[in-house]
């Protein structure tokens, strides 16, 4: 498959959209907008999975699509919005690294992932190679988001978008067993729940969601 063929084009475009939304996550300052961008990323991911199911003729991927849409596109964003409302958080994301530098770092990470993936996957289908490069970029951008934001909610979103990258990689490879995806999804859902509880606890104890305030309570400093 190559450009000009519908199957390739749509898969390519959906993967690109997921990556673009990773950048939107990095760019946004307001927590509400970050959550919305994350929901859109989840929805796009679901579409990508559905398209892959259609293109590869693998009905199991439809399950992935439905799960992603339900969890990532609807439930988790709603829950996060609820947390933000209940905790009455500051609506602005506090960044440890400025928006501009984190975007520059993001582009550098994408370039890096391309430079890593392409030589390593010589001889594989073009779509799979590109998909893998996109997925690795999304994973790296999620990590970048986790380290460049102070707010616990944004860090959770960074983690979840990292997981989006993993799913993107999984749906690009034909024949990945469903159980792997399901267990990954369950794992991440657990992490999200734990992180949510954690956020409540931090908030209760320290009256802030800035994870920097945890630094003082680390064992080594005592």
């Amino acid at each position: 498959m190559s450009f000009g063929q519908l199957g390739y084009d749509v898969a390519h475009l959906l993967g690109g959209g997921v990556l673009l939304l990773s950048f939107v996550l990095l760019y946004q300052r307001r927590i509400g907008a970050v959550i919305n961008a994350f929901a859109m990323q989840g929805a796009l991911l679901a579409l990508a999975a559905a398209w892959a199911a259609h293109a590869q003729g693998a009905p199991a991927l439809y399950v992935t699509a439905v799960l992603a849409m339900a969890a990532k596109g609807v439930l988790i964003p709603l829950a996060l919005h609820g947390i933000v409302r209940r905790l009455d958080l500051h609506r602005t994301v506090e960044t440890a690294l400025g928006i501009g530098p984190s975007l520059v770092a993001g582009v550098a990470l994408v370039a890096l992932s391309i430079l890593v993936v392409l030589p390593a996957t010589e001889g594989v289908r073009a779509l799979a190679r590109e998909n893998l490069a996109l997925a690795l970029s999304v994973v790296l951008l999620g990590m970048l988001m986790m380290i460049s934001r102070r707010n616990a909610i944004s860090q959770v979103i960074g983690l979840l978008s990292l997981e989006n990258g993993l799913i993107l990689a999984a749906i690009g490879v034909a024949g990945m067993p469903l159980v792997v995806e399901l267990s990954t999804a369950a794992l991440v859902l657990m992490i999200a729940v734990v992180a949510g509880v954690f956020a409540f606890q931090i908030r209760e104890r320290f009256d802030t969601l800035d994870t920097g305030s945890l630094e003082e309570h680390r064992g080594e400093r005592r």
Binding site: F3, D9, V10, G17, L20
Partner: peptide, 14 residues
């Protein structure tokens, strides 16, 4: 030209 839908074009459009 059959350039197709491309991520690059989308990003350039943005």
């Amino acid at each position: 030209g059959g350039l197709g839908l491309r991520v690059s074009l989308g990003l350039a459009l943005v």
